[in-house]
Design a protein around this nucleic acid. Sequence first.
DNA 1: CTGTAATCGAGACGGTACGTCGGGTCTTCAA
DNA 2: TTGAAGACCCGACGTACCGTCTCGATTACAG
Lengths: 214, 214, 214, 214
Amino acid sequence: MALPARRPGRPRNADADRAILAATRAGLVELGWSKLSLGDVAARAGVAKTTLYRRWAGKNELVVDAVAVLFDELELPDRGSLRADIEGVVLQFARLLERPEARTALMAVVAEATGDAALRGRIRSAIVDRQKRLVLLGRERAQRRGELPPDAPGPEGAAAAARQVDLIFDVIAGAVVHRTLVTGEPVDENWSSGFLTLLLGGLAAPPPAPRELG
Amino acid sequence: MALPARRPGRPRNADADRAILAATRAGLVELGWSKLSLGDVAARAGVAKTTLYRRWAGKNELVVDAVAVLFDELELPDRGSLRADIEGVVLQFARLLERPEARTALMAVVAEATGDAALRGRIRSAIVDRQKRLVLLGRERAQRRGELPPDAPGPEGAAAAARQVDLIFDVIAGAVVHRTLVTGEPVDENWSSGFLTLLLGGLAAPPPAPRELG
Amino acid sequence: MALPARRPGRPRNADADRAILAATRAGLVELGWSKLSLGDVAARAGVAKTTLYRRWAGKNELVVDAVAVLFDELELPDRGSLRADIEGVVLQFARLLERPEARTALMAVVAEATGDAALRGRIRSAIVDRQKRLVLLGRERAQRRGELPPDAPGPEGAAAAARQVDLIFDVIAGAVVHRTLVTGEPVDENWSSGFLTLLLGGLAAPPPAPRELG
Amino acid sequence: MALPARRPGRPRNADADRAILAATRAGLVELGWSKLSLGDVAARAGVAKTTLYRRWAGKNELVVDAVAVLFDELELPDRGSLRADIEGVVLQFARLLERPEARTALMAVVAEATGDAALRGRIRSAIVDRQKRLVLLGRERAQRRGELPPDAPGPEGAAAAARQVDLIFDVIAGAVVHRTLVTGEPVDENWSSGFLTLLLGGLAAPPPAPRELG
DNA sequence: CTGTAATCGAGACGGTACGTCGGGTCTTCAA
DNA sequence: TTGAAGACCCGACGTACCGTCTCGATTACAG
């Protein structure tokens, strides 16, 4: 087996990585993306700017790595029905997007990525693709429960399934992101209830009456 | 009669506004949000920096105004059915989001707005709220056609209708934005067809076979 | 006699001149030459910038006019001897150079004039030449008292007299200005006493003991 | 042994100091004090503005340092008599004040210093006090020659000598500066001859006939 | 134990842009 | 024509970050 191929010279300090990422998140919370400076991050992390630039190419890459971990906290506990499963993850996602470091960073790196293919790839692999697992898992569970039809057999069926996973992911994540960050209104149980009714039943189905507020 | 209440002193040059907004869009196309500098915008517009700062508080406000007009180009021609109407606007919106000035600006100002309530308000009034007209119009038309049930009478019915408009807007716009800018995949007729099947029929309905590509 | 040849249109407001010059002096006291702005002067004087620029070409010209009047306050009362006369004017001049508007303005306009012949002329006519009257008067008086020899007759004598006036003026004014503004030490009675002993008796004569300080 | 106590970090580039000061002098010659901009100086010196501001607090300090070295060029060769020695330095000083960088800078920094004690101190230590050496040396030499009486013994004598040095310095430098920069007339051999007659013999002594001009 | 090589802190460096200020001109309306 | 008001172009200001570099000082492993 190829060992890590230890390079000569003084090895890098692994604590520094953690300190830098934590400092980045702290900086995002306090200052927001645009006022976050790498000099400031380095100072917060107790690290020289050199150290930071040796490990990340720039602000964009650093921030993607710093916030990617937040998205891995999302889970899909089995709540017994497709509707409840999705509602759970929608609300979790909404809570995540209420955190200032996630709000400011997600949109900002996406904006930066519009003109930077490498960054786009980094976002996909570090954030987007990792969260499709939630859709996959929920869909599988619903199929086992009989709430969704099983995949058609053969390669066409697999491709159709992959397309549907992508579509559902964009619809759910897109709706929550748009409601939260663009429209600027909260995603609460009321909203998620209406959203799920629409998502499961389609536009034609009549929306249920809103629940009473406490 | 309230006269225009002409203020003393030399009036502002209205051409300058137009030149500045056009220069801003041109700069966004060439440089992208983050490399766009206001000094550069002023130079392109043939205007002094002070003139620019006298009229806009900063880059964010300027870009919102510069880009807002693009969104007003969206239209909803009557294509005979709810499905066709929505599909038309989805594709129009996708074309808009392929324009570099819209791509880079929309996400960036949303990112900036996460920590700036005034900017959030400006985005809502200049972009978001103005486009809800499309949802309102499409819904009305579908109701006239009998594709959607009429609003319930009374104030509760009106409130429910408003909630549904907001919801549909976030779902459609969010899905297209997420697909285009976050996931980074194109919104073509294939995708929009799948999306509309989901939107109209709900998750449980089986997705139709994809159309053949030309 | 030719009247002032009244020009058509609204006549200029003579109060404005006074207000502007007073505001200029006030600004010089508070801010010093370099931080004095014409916009500020106009505001202090309750006058529009237009009015100011219609009357003076710029900061330099304005300041020369504003401080020239200060120098006209210098007088040469007859104190009975050449030494006492000069000592009186030396101390008066020193008091004048302690006023911040005079300190900052005199050196500044001289500095500006190094590259501006027109300004140099304005300084000469508004300040320098006007104060030579003091030397002329003092010299005449001393000649009448027999403290200085009378001018030689003929044009050579007149030219020599003019040269001596210029020389004495530069020596006295130069010494006081240099002591006050360049060296930065006060011109008090002690210093002026020593200066006069040198001026009247020459370098070889022994300086007298300094007076006791109170 | 007190080592140079090398500070951490990259050391400053000593060449930059020289380049900046030279660029400052060149800028003064071409543009004069008031049109000299620090951005321009930095560009001429091939240096970033930050480098310049890291080393000098502003234009005033920079110009004092840039010009101070010019004054160190003054010398006092032994010409055999007190009169000849002074005449020599007077003419040297006049030549110096004909240089545009010295003309414009000296008066300007003195003007700025009227409201800035720190700058006043810098001017004294960098320019004024350093040139008193010339008076000291000339006086000493004249005492050795017997042209001037020796200092009185004891501390009172030393104090009187110091006062006389200061006085002579202000009189000579002041007269030359005033003639050159305020009055705006040249200091040539004719003038310096008259000045020295006055300085050595006092006002009462009759001025000699002017020399013939070539 | 000694070299070699990469790392780390510190901070200087060349750049670019910032947002503000002042200079001097102009354009409007009212006197 | 003057005057108040204020917009306008221009150029400089001094600061903040960027990302790179040059130092001396560590800290590993290899010989």
